[in-house]
């Protein structure tokens, strides 16, 4: 199946008919609500909070955020603020009379809220759209960095953000998480059903400070069925062995250097760099 990201920009792709299709399809509704519940589980909110929904669309996830604790939303009912770039999607949300406040805005242009506004942020199937730039004045990297910088500033210390997205390839996954790390987040990826057709990628972002327990490894601690793959670079304290002075590799390097200078250099053989036999 072709990716909608490759066909049209989001504000044009989600036109009236596509928005309606998206919102009324029970299959999409089911997937969205599952993902929202998973994201809420990762956010681990204890009390009613102010939440930002990036790419809220028709408010499918917002309806879950507004639900109370008894209806299955941990810590709810939350107050949420959502923005989306597609006016048709927002139109559907208005018809449904969702409880959150809606904005028509482009996440790639930043997040227009003052510092420390939100307890948490959630984004379901949206940020892969940021990897596409529709005009020559913008670049995917610029859009991602504006978004993550704005998001980092608008979250309170110790806040969390969970962004579920559909990466096109590993490169895109890396680009998005690198942009988040550059903005200051502690970032980690959680993958559900990896390697299958229904793989879901969650970018779990943490803002330092507060009562938070480290990065994503602290978030998933105590969750069942989660394997932690730490790919952070280990600090290398050992120098590369071939650089050691007097080794064969070092001698060959020096000989090449001398040869390039035009000096007469003995040919390299199997005896090069070998120790002499002890005479006695």
């Amino acid at each position: 199946m072709s990716r909608p990201e490759d066909t049209l920009p989001p504000d044009l792709f989600y036109n009236d008919s596509e928005s309606r299709k998206y919102t009324t399809s029970s299959r999409i509704q089911k997937i969205q609500s599952d993902m929202t519940h998973r994201a809420l589980e990762l956010l681990d909110l204890k009390s009613p909070s102010l939440i930002l929904d990036v790419g809220c669309g028709s408010g499918l996830s917002g309806e879950i955020l507004s639900a109370s604790d008894e209806e299955g939303t941990p810590g709810g009912p939350h107050i949420w603020i959502g923005f989306d770039i597609s006016s048709s999607m927002l139109g559907v949300a208005l018809e449904k009379e969702v409880e959150g406040d809606l904005f028509l805005a482009d996440a790639g242009q930043g997040v227009p809220f003052r510092a420390g506004t939100f307890d948490a942020a959630i984004s379901i199937s949206a940020i892969q759209w940021l990897c596409n730039a529709e005009s020559s004045e913008e670049s995917p990297a610029g859009r991602l960095s504006r978004f993550f910088n704005g998001l980092y500033a608008s979250l309170r210390r110790g806040g969390r953000a969970v962004c579920q997205f559909y990466p096109k390839n590993d490169e895109q996954k890396k680009m998005i998480s690198a942009a988040a790390v550059k903005a200051g987040f502690g970032a980690g990826l959680l993958e559900d059903d990896p390697g299958t057709k229904s793989a879901k990628t969650y970018l779990v972002l943490t803002v330092g400070g507060g009562e938070l327990d480290g990065d994503i490894t602290g978030v998933v601690k105590g969750m069942e069925g989660v394997d932690v793959l730490d790919q952070r670079r280990k600090v290398k304290d050992r120098r590369r062995p071939e650089d050691r002075k007097g080794s064969k590799a070092w001698i060959i390097k020096k000989k090449e250097q001398m040869e390039r200078k035009g000096k007469v250099v003995k040919a390299t053989s199997k005896y090069t760099g070998r120790k002499r036999r002890i005479a006695f």
Binding site: F83, I85, L94, L102, F103, L104, A105, D106, Q109, E137
Partner: peptide, 14 residues
């Protein structure tokens, strides 16, 4: 409009 604020910016202001 209808409670929805338009925060889309023209490209030269971003």
């Amino acid at each position: 409009k209808e409670g929805v604020a338009n925060f889309l910016l023209p490209a030269h202001l971003v």
